[in-house]
Amino acid sequence: MQALYPEIKPYARHTLAVEAPHELYVDESGMPEGLPVVFIHGGPGGGCDALSRRFFDPTLYRIVTFDQRGCGRSTPHASLENNTTAHLVADMEKIREHLGIEQWVLFGGSWGSTLALAYAQAHPERVLGLVLRGIFLCRPQDLQWFYQEGASHVFPDYWEDYIAPIPAAERGELIPAFYKRLTGDDQIAQMHAAKAWSVWEGRTATLRPNPNVVERFGDPRRALAMARIECHYFMHQIFLEEGQLLRDMHKISHLPGVIVHGRYDMVCPLDNAWDLHKRWPNSELVIVRDAGHAAGEPGIADALVRATNQMARRLLDLPQNVE
Rank of each mutant, 00 (worst) to 15 (best):
E97C: 15
H98T: 12
H98G: 09
G100S: 14
I101L: 15
Q103E: 07
W104P: 02
L106N: 05
G108Y: 01
G108E: 04
G109Y: 03
G109H: 03
S110Q: 06
W111S: 03
W111N: 01
S113G: 05
S113W: 06
T114N: 09
T114C: 13
T114F: 15
T114A: 11
L115A: 09
L117F: 04
L117Q: 14
A118Y: 10
A118L: 13
Y119N: 06
Y119F: 11
Q121E: 06
Q121L: 12
H123N: 08
E125V: 07
V127W: 01
V127R: 01
V127L: 03
V127D: 04
L128Q: 02
L128S: 00
L130Y: 09
L132F: 09
L132H: 10
R133P: 06
R133G: 07
G134A: 09
I135F: 15
I135R: 15
F136I: 10
F136P: 02
F136V: 10
F136N: 06
L137Q: 07
P140Q: 12
Q141K: 11
Q141V: 14
D142H: 13
L143Y: 12
Q144E: 12
W145K: 10
W145A: 09
F146W: 15
Q148E: 15
E149I: 12
G150K: 12
G150A: 11
A151N: 13
S152D: 13
S152E: 10
H153C: 10
H153K: 15
H153R: 15
V154A: 15
F155C: 13
P156K: 12
W159S: 05
D161V: 02
D161M: 05
I166R: 09
I166Q: 08
A168R: 01
G172R: 05
G172V: 00
E173D: 11
L174P: 08
L174T: 05
A177Y: 03
F178T: 00
F178Y: 11
Y179S: 02
Y179L: 02
K180Y: 02
R181D: 01
L182A: 01
L182G: 01
L182Q: 01
T183G: 00
D185I: 14
D186W: 07
D186S: 10
D186C: 08
I188Q: 08
I188N: 05
A189P: 08
A189C: 07
A189W: 03
Q190E: 10
Q190M: 05
M191I: 11
M191L: 06
M191S: 07
H192G: 06
A193L: 06
A193W: 01
K195P: 04
K195T: 04
W197P: 05
V199W: 15
V199M: 13
V199S: 09
W200V: 06
W200T: 04
W200E: 05
W200H: 08
E201A: 05
E201P: 02
G202I: 00
G202V: 00
R203W: 08
